[in-house]
Design a protein around this nucleic acid. Sequence first.
DNA 1: GCTCCTTTCTTATCATGATAACCATATCGC
DNA 2: GCGATATGGTTATCATGATAAGAAAGGAGC
Lengths: 146, 146
Amino acid sequence: MFFLKDLPTQRMLQRYAAEHPEMDVDKVAAALTMMRRASVLIRALDAYFAAFDLSLLRFLILIVIDREAADARLTIGDIGRRIDVSKPVMTRTLKRLADGGLIDIAPDGADKRSKVVTLTAAGQDRLARTLPGYFKMISGDMATAM
Amino acid sequence: MFFLKDLPTQRMLQRYAAEHPEMDVDKVAAALTMMRRASVLIRALDAYFAAFDLSLLRFLILIVIDREAADARLTIGDIGRRIDVSKPVMTRTLKRLADGGLIDIAPDGADKRSKVVTLTAAGQDRLARTLPGYFKMISGDMATAM
DNA sequence: GCTCCTTTCTTATCATGATAACCATATCGC
DNA sequence: GCGATATGGTTATCATGATAAGAAAGGAGC
């Protein structure tokens, strides 16, 4: 993700508004600001995760598995359904997490098409070490806006 | 961009907060909501732009050139500096816009390293046809939050 | 119990972001 | 004015998102 470094000034938006009556200057300005904020925050998060050999997606996968009840048996599809990402990306990313020893992918006994994904001890540890900085970063970002 | 479809519930955040005192539940919840909103909005925008054979980046480039003073001579680097995107991506994307006839890329007389980028009539037209729906979409999104 | 449709996951391929390393040209210091 | 450094742009390569299409298994209708 990326976005304009210098958002349009109020004056520029008003110039556009004169030509585009369907436009609400305040709402447009708010949306642009939000997208810029999200863009900057997500970049910062990804840089932070990289230090743990994670990405935003790999982190989200760990957290989705972790927050499930202890006896839950999440399949690859279950995880994909909880995150807004396509199936092939899930396949590839889970393989990478498994290669890194952070998750286990095992066949599901009941349905031979499915595979059950669980966190390894290393995965739980990696997540635990990542969380404090993560919460700190997003709290800190919001602190400038609230 | 992508993000959790189901954001953590207040209850789950409080469970994490108990283990992570540095975490401010309200701020974390606000940041997660913002990223989710931005993610959804950007997807919708990209889908909208695709109908005009544009992407968010290609659109931003057109708007950055357009909003400059009529006699401004933006170079490739100038545009890159206004948008949060790397130089090679600018090179590739500008080439694509030029191939599509939406911009002109001409050598700069003064500095032989630089190239000056301008909108063609087709580029201005494409931008003009894209803007109303764009403003409508982001106004509409914000309307649900303001 | 076949046939057909659905579901789960994978493979192949493309689009588009990033960095590293490279020319060509400008500019700075002396 | 010449060597060193900085700047503008490109090429090569990788990371990671998407869609399309297929294999394997499950399930529904008859």
